[in-house]
């Protein structure tokens, strides 16, 4: 099956820096993908290129089977929410009316339900909206557009927690009824983690992680408990991080845990906590991506935690 979005060796250079450097991605149709990375990593540039707002320096970009730039067959089937969207001097209702002309699957009921959910008034001028309300307007447009490909670039800047939950709930509910390809760029990783089927992490313009969320969820586990028991369980396994406090140790162990491992941990009084998606992404962005060989723990017991992070 042709992926909904496919990017091959995509590079975008500006005069003094390279925003994207040889990115290769394929995103299947009907999925919600998280686009993650630090500020300035290149997420927005990538999304702008996907939406045809920006041009690549080299490489190929295909959305719904064709290059998106200046291609209305693609653009009308695509919705894009930008964090820094500039609006003309119009009112909320007028912005929605204009959007309805451009999107063939526009859902008026959903648009008005979202306005209610977010507490937006249709007769309010866009320039008088707060930052959060502006984000809510962008979300409303992109959701009601019901476009085959929907790109959210930090869609909820300034939105309060309740409104963000509205966004997640609405997105999931509407996605279940009308599956589409969603790419969501966000910094609130754990908050959005339940939505994401796969994640793409870019750092300084390079792709550093592209994996299914399910795979990542079981990727690493924090093991805490008596030093000897922790060391024994971790023996022969890659470890990302190691902390010690007196006779207690806490490590991040890479790789799936078998039922036998869990039973051993339980009998030794070890505490197992799967590493959250956000913690894995933080490590991916820091370059600690590949599992690394275990390091023999230092002997001696110091007061206070000692952190020993191993690099890839």
């Amino acid at each position: 099956m042709t992926p909904a979005i496919s990017v091959t060796d995509l590079t975008r250079r500006y005069r003094d820096h390279t925003a994207l450097d040889g990115i290769d991605i394929a995103i299947g149709g009907g999925t919600i993908t998280g686009l993650l990375g630090r500020n300035g990593a290149g997420k927005t540039t990538l999304l702008r290129i996907l939406a045809g707002h920006e041009f690549p320096s080299s490489g190929s970009v295909r959305v719904l089977g064709a290059p998106p730039a200046e291609n209305e067959d693609v653009l009308r089937r695509l919705a894009f929410v930008r964090e820094d969207q500039v609006y003309p001097d119009i009112k909320v209702g007028q912005a929605l009316r204009a959007a309805s002309w451009f999107h063939p699957n526009w859902d008026f009921e959903l648009a008005s339900a979202l306005l209610d959910d977010f507490g937006l008034r249709a007769d309010k001028a866009v320039k008088k909206l707060s930052r959060g309300q502006r984000s809510a307007l962008g979300i409303t447009i992109a959701m009601a557009a019901r476009a085959e490909v929907t790109l959210f670039d930090e869609p909820y800047a300034g939105l309060d927690a309740v409104a963000r939950q509205v966004f997640y709930d609405r997105l999931l509910a509407d996605f279940a009824r009308f599956p589409r390809t969603v790419v969501l760029s966000t910094h609130l990783i754990d908050e959005a983690a339940a939505l994401l089927e796969s994640v793409i992490v870019i750092d300084r313009g390079r792709l550093v992680l592209n994996a299914a969320t399910d795979v990542l969820r079981g990727l690493a586990t924090r093991v805490s408990g008596p030093c000897l028991a922790v060391d024994s369980l971790a023996e022969g396994r890659p470890v990302w991080e190691r902390r010690r406090l007196g006779s207690q140790a806490s490590i991040v162990m890479v790789g799936p845990l078998s039922a036998h491992d869990r039973e051993r941990a339980r009998s030794c009084g070890l505490d197992l906590t799967p590493l959250s998606l956000q913690q894995i992404v933080v490590r991916a962005a820091a370059g600690v991506l590949a599992p690394v060989p275990i390091r023999v723990p230092e002997t001696g017991f110091e007061a206070g935690f000692e952190t020993d992070r191993t690099g890839a």
């Binding site: 045809g52 707002h53 200046e70 653009l75 969207q85």
Partner: peptide
Amino acid sequence: GRSLPFSLTLGASRRS
């Protein structure tokens, strides 16, 4: 000025 960015977001091409 302020109309071009939003119209591109709505899916118009530059040419259109």
